Amino acid sequence: MNSIVLPAPIQAAAVADRPEPVVRLTDVHRRFGATPALNGVSLEVGKGEIVGLIGRSGAGKSTLIRCLNGLERADSGEIAIEGRRIDRLAEQELQPLRRRIGMIFQHFNLLSAKTVIDNIALPLKIEGVAKAERLKRARELLDIVGLSGRERSYPSQLSGGQKQRVGIARALAARPALLLSDEATSALDPETTHSILALLKDINQRLGLTILLITHEMEVVRTIADRVAVIEAGRIVEEGPVWSVFANPQSQVTASMLRSVRPQLPEAIARRLSTAGKHLLLAVDITSPDAQSVLFDLAGLGSKTVRLLHGGIDHIQGQPVGRFFISVAANDAERIQKFLTSRLARVEVLGHVADHA
């Protein structure tokens, strides 16, 4: 059955008055043989923002991050960090700019033969900073990441979450303008992931640090990002505030990736859908500030013809985001849909059911 989709109130769009970008990519292309890894990527990350870049394996995330830190060269397009183009700089010219970019990795990349404090101070040692100054900075960072007193420990003596905290401290050693997080929580358990994300958010707020999160986990983006960009087949297919994209995904790949964090139609009900029946099954998405009152009003409006089957209301970035599934008597469906759209809801007809499911 063809779905009927009524107009959505809010489209995922760029945020007005976005801060001056720390990162600007303009129509960036990168091919490996006949395969386009990046196929016209344009993206901005403003000063102090946390932006999540999310995509499936092979979507182009790793190539994009390697182009940002100068490990890959774009075939065409422009890449600028803090207003300076880096896509055509010689290797020697790239070195000072790389110090403005901190990196944290999925598997920590710590040197096992060095202590925690020496791992953190390593970028400063390479830069030629005096020993006393680099150790002072490393101790400051140990305090920031919650590892004071562990400076003489070795990586083998740390948990996964502690290792990642050391990795974050090391990435901050040279006071970067941009922090790139490359799947930094993928190897961690859920509780540790939550603590690391809370740490990143704290660092962002305390230091005003710009963060680009490269991830395939929607929950990571939902937890701390301000905006999200979805990459697929080397292109940005969707971009906007996290709450808006979560509430009203515009691309098929985004909707698919959101399945784990948005209410979905229970399989037992989906199996009962047909092309004819006494009741229509509707999927309802709503981002109105009074989303909860819509449910109460709907219950009163259609007390005998409407039944809530599944779903609920969440809050993302302080915005109420509702998604629920209702069964509506077919002869009352038009009235109910008009009411919902008048309250700024998006309604999709999924099919018929013989009864109220």
Rank of each mutant, 00 (worst) to 15 (best):
V253Q: 12
L200H: 08
L213V: 15
L308C: 00
P266F: 11
G318D: 09
G208E: 11
A121K: 03
L6T: 15
R99E: 04
A184D: 01
Q264K: 03
L6I: 06
G167C: 07
I65D: 01
G70M: 02
G234N: 07
I50K: 05
V294M: 04
P190I: 01
R56W: 13
R271L: 09
L282D: 09
A14S: 09
A59C: 09
V51A: 12
R24N: 13
F296T: 15
A345S: 15
Q106D: 08
A255M: 05
R235V: 04
K131C: 01
V28Q: 09
R152G: 00
Q264F: 00
L258P: 05
A173K: 03
A255F: 04
G240I: 12
S260Q: 14
E334K: 14
G302Y: 13
Q162R: 03
L213T: 04
R271C: 01
I117C: 07
V220L: 10
G240N: 12
I224P: 01
T35C: 00
H315A: 13
G322D: 12
H107C: 06
L94G: 05
P241R: 12
V261T: 11
A132Q: 13
S112P: 04
L25A: 15
V347Q: 09
P320I: 07
L340D: 07
A268E: 15
Q205C: 04
V22C: 03
Q337N: 13
S153I: 00
V347N: 10
G311I: 11
R56I: 08
K136C: 05
F108I: 08
M1N: 06
P190C: 02
I65W: 03
L142T: 05
H279D: 04
G161R: 12
E82Q: 15
Q292P: 00
I214W: 08
S244Y: 01
L340Y: 03
V253N: 06
L295K: 06
A184C: 11
A8R: 15
G55L: 08
S57K: 09
L124C: 06
R84L: 06
A16I: 08
R137D: 09
A291S: 11
R343I: 03
H315I: 06
V349L: 08
T254K: 04
L197D: 08
P36E: 10
D143T: 15
G302L: 12
G52P: 03
I120S: 02
A8F: 01
S181V: 00
V253K: 10
S293L: 13
Q92W: 01
L94R: 08
D27N: 15
D226M: 02
N2D: 13
D314K: 08
A276V: 14
K125C: 03
L25G: 01
A283K: 14
L197Y: 09
T287W: 00
D189H: 02
Q317N: 15
R30P: 01
S57E: 09
V284E: 01
E219N: 07
L38I: 07
L273C: 03
D226W: 06
I4M: 13
Q106R: 10
D202F: 13
S195H: 13
L199K: 11
A74C: 11
P263E: 11
I336R: 00
S327V: 02
K278H: 12
K136G: 14
L25I: 12
P96W: 09
P263N: 08
E219W: 00
K278C: 03
D118N: 13
V23R: 04
A121H: 04
Q162F: 04
R272T: 10
I81P: 07
V221A: 14
